[in-house]
Amino acid sequence: MMWPSIALLAFVTLQRLGELVLARHNTAALLARGAREVAPEHYPTMVALHAGWIIGLWLLAPGRPVALFWFLVFMGLQALRLWVLATLKGRWTTRIIILPGAPLVRSGPYRFLRHPNYAIVVGEIAVLPLAFGLPLYAIVFSLLNALILHVRVKAENAALKSAMILK
């Protein structure tokens, strides 16, 4: 039965495309308010990694059964993703954007983790392939994601610190 895997892949693909539209809108609005982008050089690599992850899943996962446990874990991560989006509102973007004078968000999931969105993405990159029975795929993309997140979190923390937002 192919439809469960296709439906899940379509959901994730449409979600990511929608997030790119939202991120572009929020980025433009933030820049118009005087924000600045920091460390944009890693962004194309991050986009390529995520695009490759989805494209690879479209090549490998259709027709594979969807493991209920991992599907439920993935859907739990989606609920957490919505919590992050609702907390950040217009400040959510896929780029590192610093808005001078804006306080660091400390509500919602940011009460518990400094970078909850990244924690969710770490989970998604591993869990979705596991839902399709692709553990090696989960490991490879998790390692690649760890490399890009190392660069990104370091750049973001430095930018927040230099903006006197992060102490």
Rank of each mutant, 00 (worst) to 15 (best):
S5T: 06
S5N: 03
A7D: 00
A10S: 11
A10Q: 00
F11C: 11
V12H: 09
L14H: 12
Q15M: 13
Q15L: 14
L17H: 11
L22V: 15
L22M: 15
L22F: 10
A23W: 04
H25Q: 13
H25L: 03
T27Q: 15
A28L: 12
A29W: 07
L30W: 07
L31Q: 02
R33C: 11
R33T: 07
R33M: 11
G34S: 07
A35E: 06
A35Y: 07
A35V: 05
R36L: 08
E37V: 13
V38A: 15
V38W: 03
A39W: 14
P40Y: 04
P40R: 05
P40K: 02
E41K: 12
E41V: 09
H42D: 09
G52K: 01
G52S: 03
G52A: 01
L57H: 03
W58L: 10
W58C: 08
L60P: 01
L60F: 12
L60A: 13
L60W: 10
L60I: 05
A61Y: 04
G63E: 07
P65W: 09
P65F: 09
V66L: 00
V66M: 02
A67H: 14
F69A: 15
F71A: 15
F71Q: 09
V73N: 04
G76I: 11
L77M: 12
L77W: 02
A79E: 05
A79T: 06
L80N: 04
L80S: 08
L80F: 06
R81M: 00
V84F: 08
A86Q: 14
L88R: 03
K89M: 10
W92C: 03
W92D: 06
T93L: 02
T93S: 14
T94I: 08
T94G: 15
I96K: 01
I98T: 02
L99T: 07
P100C: 06
G101Q: 08
A102Q: 11
P103S: 08
L104E: 11
R106Q: 12
S107Y: 01
Y110T: 00
R111L: 01
R111W: 01
F112L: 13
F112K: 07
H115S: 01
P116D: 00
P116M: 02
Y118I: 10
I120A: 00
V122Y: 13
G123V: 09
I125G: 00
A126W: 02
L130K: 02
A131T: 06
G133P: 08
L134P: 04
L136F: 11
A138G: 09
V140Q: 05
F141M: 06
S142Y: 05
L143Y: 07
L144T: 03
I148C: 09
H150E: 08
V151F: 12
K154P: 00
A155Q: 09
A159V: 02
A159D: 00
A159R: 00
A159S: 03
L160E: 10
S162T: 12
S162P: 02
M164Q: 12
M164T: 07
M164R: 14
I165W: 00
L166T: 06
K167C: 04
